[in-house]
Amino acid sequence: MSVLCRMFTKGLFCGQPQWLSVGGSQYFCSGASRLDCVRRDSAANSTSPVSLTYDVFDGKGDSTPLVFLHGLFGSKSNFHSIAKSLVQRTGRKVLTVDARNHGKSMHTPVLTYEAMTNDLTHLLGQLRIGKCILIGHSMGGKVAMATALSQPSLVERLVVVDISPAPTSVRTNFRAYIEAMKEVKIATDIPRSTARRLAEDQLRKQVKEHSVRQFLLTNLVEQNGHYAWRVNLEAISNHMDDIMGFPEFNTTYEGPTLFLGGSSSAYISSEDYPEIQRLFPCADIQYIPDASHWIHADKPLDFISSIIRFLQS
C-alpha cells in the first residue's frame, strides 16, 4: 500500500473548513520499494533506477510475457481490462507498470527516457524476466522504443502505440493541463464524488475536452480526507521538452515491430516513416479506423485483435 507523504501548513487542524491546493508538492512512495519519501537530493540529475509499482495478470502458458507501459498522466490501471482479455485469449502473463512520477511509483525530480528505460530494465531484472514483449502507448511507447534500441536482447517483440521515434510535433496542451491541475483547490473531508466534481469544474476552463478531463481526474486521489494529484506535476513540467523529444540512437532494433496508430490521430505521420524504418527495419505500420490517440480506450476490441495478430504473425 503506497503512503501519501504530505507537508501540512500551520492551521490545517484548526477546525475551520480547509482548502488545499492539490498541485505541485504531493508525493507518493512506492509500496513495492519501501523507500523513504525523499524527493529532492544530490541525485537530482541521476538516472539511477527507482523501483516501479506494477500489476501481474498470470496466464497459464509459459510464453514470453507482455509488458504494458502507459502514457503521460496515465497509470498501470489504464491497461487492466486489456491485460485481462489478453490473458484469457493468449494464456500469456501480462504486466502493467506505473512509470516513475506516475501512479503509485516513486516520485523523483528526473523524468527522462534514459531514466525510465533504466527503471524498466531494473524491474525486469528484479522479476527475472529475461525477455518480454513490450507494448507502450505514447510516452510509454518511447520508453519501449528506447529499451528495445538500448537493450535489444530483452525485447522479443515491440508494439508502439500512436507515437513515433521522431520528436513529437503535434500541438499539445500539456503545459496548460499542468497549470490547470496546479490551480485546483479542494476542501478537506468531503466525499470523493464531490471532490471529483469540484476538480472537474475548476479544470473546465483550460481543459475543454470532457474525455481529457476525465482522464486527468483519474489522478485525483484521497487519503484521510485530503485530496492530491498522484502525478509529479513539477517533474513533468520541468521535463516536458524531454518527454516531447526522443534520444538519438545510432543502433537499430531488428526484432518484429508494430507501430499502431489511430486514424484520427496525428501522432504517427508519413513524415515519421523514414526515422521509423531507420531504427526499426522490421517495422509494420498500421492504423485503427476511427481511433484517436487513446486507441485502447476508443477501440479496445480492435486494439486487442491487432495485438493478437501481431503475436501470431
Rank of each mutant, 00 (worst) to 15 (best):
I178E: 03
A235V: 02
Y227W: 09
L220W: 11
E200A: 12
Y253A: 03
L158C: 09
I236R: 04
K185V: 11
F259A: 02
K142H: 07
T168G: 14
F174G: 05
L258Y: 01
I190H: 04
L216G: 10
M139C: 00
T172E: 03
A166F: 04
R171S: 15
V143Y: 00
N173Y: 15
D162S: 10
A144E: 03
S265I: 07
P281R: 07
G225E: 11
L158W: 11
D201W: 08
A228W: 08
S269N: 06
P165C: 07
S265V: 06
L217P: 07
Y253F: 13
E209Y: 06
P281T: 08
F249H: 06
L217N: 10
S211H: 08
A176I: 11
Q223W: 10
V212Y: 05
L279A: 04
A166Q: 09
A148P: 03
T252K: 07
K142F: 06
E248R: 02
V221A: 13
A228D: 09
H226Q: 12
A187F: 09
Q214I: 09
S150G: 00
A180Q: 06
Q202I: 12
P167I: 07
N219F: 04
A176G: 14
S193C: 07
N232H: 15
N173F: 14
S153R: 10
S264A: 15
N232V: 11
T147Q: 02
S153Q: 15
S211Y: 06
R213H: 12
L220Y: 08
I178A: 02
T172S: 09
H226L: 14
S270D: 15
T168D: 15
L198H: 12
I268A: 04
V170E: 15
V161H: 01
I163K: 02
G140F: 01
V184W: 07
D242R: 04
F280L: 00
L258D: 00
N250K: 08
R192T: 11
D201Q: 12
E200T: 07
N173Q: 15
L216R: 09
P274S: 05
P152K: 00
M145K: 01
G262A: 15
R213N: 10
R230I: 10
S211I: 05
L154M: 07
T147G: 01
I276G: 01
P247N: 01
K205E: 09
G141I: 06
E234S: 13
D189Q: 13
K205S: 11
V207I: 13
V170T: 15
S264L: 15
S269F: 05
T168E: 14
S263L: 13
M181C: 12
Y253Q: 03
S153T: 09
Q277M: 03
V143F: 00
S150K: 00
K142Y: 06
P165V: 05
N238I: 04
